[in-house]
Design a protein around this nucleic acid. Structure first.
Lengths: 336, 336
DNA sequence: ACCGTGATAGTTAGCGGTCAAGTTACAAAT
DNA sequence: ATTTGTAACTTGACCGCTAACTATCACGGT
């Protein structure tokens, strides 16, 4: 069916090997022959067979991208960044949505490994057994880069924001806007959630305040976390005058609750989220947020992975932190 | 390094072929031998080498998913649906973001084809040369399913909503809510955009109205299409009392413009979008919309592709239309 | 006793490439 | 004239697996 090297070789009366070498610019082919070969390849529209090549070289030019949830816009953006960086280098991205399930994650990584992907980029779901999973990768010498969720206690390539800093940045901003009773709607007890909480506390401490326990709401109530957690916060006393929300969807829910209670944003309560999802400024009250440069994270992770894959000797793992960036919109901007 | 069939064969004193057959439940292996083989496989944690297998069978168990924009939540949801359906069947999804660029699309499809993916799911960006692209697929006998954007004038598997119906459904709803001067903010001049416009016109016609030319705004002004197009509509006379927007982000922008003009939604102007993006009800005015069951589209496309891939004889192409579903929220709900 | 048959296992050839070790032919060095 | 060198190709062997034959053996029918 398709054109093979052999066809070209027979066609030109040279050996298969000559064709193979010519294609890969091997030094011991004369310019004349190489040109003949390349010309004929173009004429016949020869496409090298990746599979056959993989078989002998062991490289697949496939990269696995393992994400907890494609629909979460943060991960979608990361995916975009990764793809944009890798495709021009001849790599294809195999995607895997683990639905935040550790079991699926382990299984999928396993599948990808025995598909012999050249490398992996993983935003790992929380689960015990993560450690072994990554040790397995180390043993098999498969380069990988973790993103977003760091795995404490291991050395591994990592790209993400420092969640502490993110939390601190957001909280500092609220303080600068004059808020003095700042609440936090926290995220799940994974790295990201606890880091942001820690940053929140740190910022308060720096200004001689402490977080009132009743002002830290955790919202594991399902999908409209933000809405419900905020309702709960509104009943506390003193009533908060600023809220730092774990992420933008939560913040959107919080705003909804505040407005429903006939309070104003930001005059009565200033709100800031995190993630800078792209619809943030389409909300009725455009949402202040902390941008974590999702696409950049993806691109950077891809770069890091490329280095690990191309270099023969395993380089020392690196951790790259993208600085969080404040995006002030109406939900936290107090004039004067 | 890894365990191969040969290792198991030698280990057990049988031939390689026996192992191969045992693994695949070939009928001419005795139960006893098969069990011995499988047992040893488990003990040694044998993982078949997909590449080697592909090499001889010609099947890769890879499916290409070609999308114009991963960050668009519709496509992200589709991707999720596709992955969810395909992964359990042993297929992996190779993703490709074409950034709405026909050139990239063609190139990527090419790459995927010579990677020998078993099938493709494509939401094609608009460009001339599409036809040839799909003819190429036909020639190479690669099963594929188009989604969202149909390609007129060809026979091909397709899954999506009928955009006419979607437009009509939205418009009928506005009419039912008492709107009499209904405007439309239209999308780009591709299948989706024109279909929805056609549906809008059809619904109006059915009720003896016609679309006033000034009430059809096209908003190619960049990213806040909806906002700007709505401002323009607000200056027309008669002022519309209902707007059907091409999609939800546009609708969100439109609402913003309306509220800024100190008008009320839905009392003064009712608004409906399309797509039911997941943040629609986080907006200040929860947005009415037409759901196109993105995940279902993905799953259905995957099913259809599975059929084409598994059956040897190429089945007649099918077009599956998912009925659009009205989701009424506050932005269009008029009491009484 | 002969042969056909069904159940089980083994052999032979690749699939389309690449790698490493030959083989030429011809020019320069001894 | 013989050796040596080198540029330019060619020759197997092999990557891990499967398809399509071929071989072996026990058993029953005639």
């Amino acid at each position: 069916m398709a054109v093979r090297m052999k066809d070209i070789a027979d066609d030109l009366g040279v050996s298969l090997m000559t064709v193979s070498k010519a294609l890969r610019n091997h030094s011991d082919i004369s310019e004349k022959t190489r040109d003949r070969v390349l010309k004929r390849m173009r004429e016949l529209n020869y496409q090298p067979d990746w599979i056959a090549r993989s078989m002998v070289t062991g490289r697949t030019y496939l990269v696995g991208l393992v994400l907890p949830d494609l629909m979460h816009s943060f991960f979608a953006e990361v995916a975009k960044g990764v793809a944009r960086k890798l495709q021009p280098m001849g790599y294809q991205v195999v995607i895997s949505d683990t639905e935040e399930d550790g079991g699926i994650e382990r299984r999928q990584v396993g599948v990808l490994v025995n598909r012999k992907v050249d490398g992996l980029i993983i935003a790992s779901a929380q689960h015990n057994g993560r450690l072994e999973l990554f040790q397995m990768l180390d043993r098999n010498k498969i380069p990988y880069v973790l993103i977003d969720r760091i795995l404490p206690g291991t050395q591994a390539n990592y790209v993400g924001v420092k969640d502490d800093d993110l939390g601190a940045l957001a909280t500092e901003h609220l303080i600068a806007q004059g808020c003095r009773k700042i609440a936090h709607i926290r995220g799940p007890a994974v790295a990201t959630g606890t880091g942001r909480l820690r940053g929140y506390r740190r910022a308060l401490a720096r200004h001689g305040m402490t977080a009132r326990p009743q002002h830290i709401a955790s919202g594991q109530y399902g999908d409209n976390t933000g809405y419900e957690a905020m309702q709960q916060l509104l009943r506390t006393s003193p009533r908060p005058d600023g809220v730092f929300c774990y992420n933008d969807p939560v913040a959107a829910g919080a705003i909804k609750a505040i407005l429903e209670a006939r309070l104003r944003v930001p005059e009565d309560i200033a709100v800031i989220g995190a993630g800078n999802v792209h619809y943030s400024d389409l909300l009725r009250v455009p949402l202040s947020t902390v941008d974590q440069s999702s696409t950049t994270i993806g691109e950077t992770a891809a770069d890091l992975l490329l280095q690990s894959m191309e270099s023969k000797k395993p380089a020392a793992p690196r951790r790259i932190f993208i600085p969080p960036r404040l995006v002030v919109r109406d939900s936290s901007r107090r004039k004067g």
